[in-house]
């Protein structure tokens, strides 16, 4: 039922041409009294309220969460976190944390919650508790026109001589291994390095969370193209809490459900993933 959230170039193009529907407002989200009521009255929430600050862990991923030139944070995750904080009646404090260390940092109490497109996986469930999904990320593929031209299916890439680049430690790397088991997987510390491998021709394809591959193809149409449009996978992402705060899950799940019901999450998602209107916010 959430497939409609999946980004696709057609939707991006259509939205940009139409100027888009009423897009989600950015900046401090106003509190929604009904949603706020859903959050009242559990110990985790009360603790945050008494402190007056919701500390949110995330890593920088364009356009989930980005840093402006003056050091503020903007992006889909940031907007979700700000809305949640507003309904809690507290300030959001953003604690950017390198991806590899984000779960340990949550467990050691550096922040209260991860709102950072953490894909819900069995492995991560061993360490943290997840809310219901509030967004879905999908993997997409981009390929080099120079070293892997004119391919149109995933099977074309599933060969040992094909080098596929992905960011290490992410679900993109896992997806690459599952979707293209025959191909040679090379992992890198950042998405930009995977793009560089593609440009230099050392890798024939890259797999990354949408919309990154599509964005690359739009920016360098002469070098990079999207061989298989749409997303290849759909991964639910949840907010993550330390297991000791498990009792806060029902309240957060209710809040997420309410935000789905009003289509707020959907609109916010499409603002960040299907338009580039936010680029001015990076100033």
């Amino acid at each position: 039922m959430f497939k409609r959230f999946m980004p696709s170039l057609a939707i991006v193009a259509a939205l940009i041409m139409m100027g888009g529907p009423a897009l989600a407002q950015t900046g401090p989200a106003g509190a929604n009294p009904e949603d706020a009521a859903l959050l009242a009255g559990n110990p985790w929430v009360e603790q945050i309220k008494s402190r007056g600050v919701l500390r949110v862990g995330f890593d920088i991923f364009r356009p989930w969460a980005m840093e402006t030139r003056s050091g503020r944070y903007v992006g889909f995750e940031i907007q979700v976190a700000e809305a949640l904080a507003a309904d809690l009646g507290v300030e959001a404090e953003f604690v950017p944390t390198a991806w590899d260390g984000i779960i340990p940092a949550l467990l050691t109490g550096r922040f209260d919650i991860i709102i950072g497109s953490l894909g819900i996986t069995e492995e991560r469930r061993q360490k943290v508790v997840f809310t219901d999904p509030y967004s879905f990320s999908g993997m997409a593929i981009a390929a080099s026109r120079r070293s892997a031209p004119n391919k149109t299916s995933l099977a074309d890439f599933n060969r040992p001589e094909i080098v596929v680049a992905a960011k290490s430690g992410t679900t993109a790397a896992i997806a690459a291994r599952e979707l293209l088991p025959q191909a040679t997987l090379k992992t890198f510390d950042s998405e930009d390095q995977t793009a560089q491998e593609l440009r230099s021709g050392k890798a024939q394809a890259l797999i990354a969370s949408a919309p990154y591959p599509a964005e690359l193809a739009l920016k360098s149409p002469g070098e990079i193209y999207v061989p298989v449009s749409g997303t290849l996978t759909s991964e639910p992402c949840g907010m993550a809490l330390s297991p000791k705060n498990r009792e806060a899950l029902p309240a957060l799940n209710a809040w997420i459900a309410a935000r789905f019901k009003t289509r707020w999450l959907e609109k916010t998602w499409s603002y960040w993933f299907e338009t580039l209107d936010w680029e001015g916010l990076l100033k």
Binding site: I60, E67, P96, D192, Q196
Partner: peptide
């Protein structure tokens, strides 16, 4: 210190790289 995600120059650069991708 960048491994502790403290925003000194190196970690700031990492964050910027993830935001604007001009590696």
């Amino acid at each position: 210190v960048s491994v502790l995600s403290l925003a000194e120059l190196t970690y700031s650069s990492m964050k910027l790289a993830a935001t604007i991708h001009h590696l």
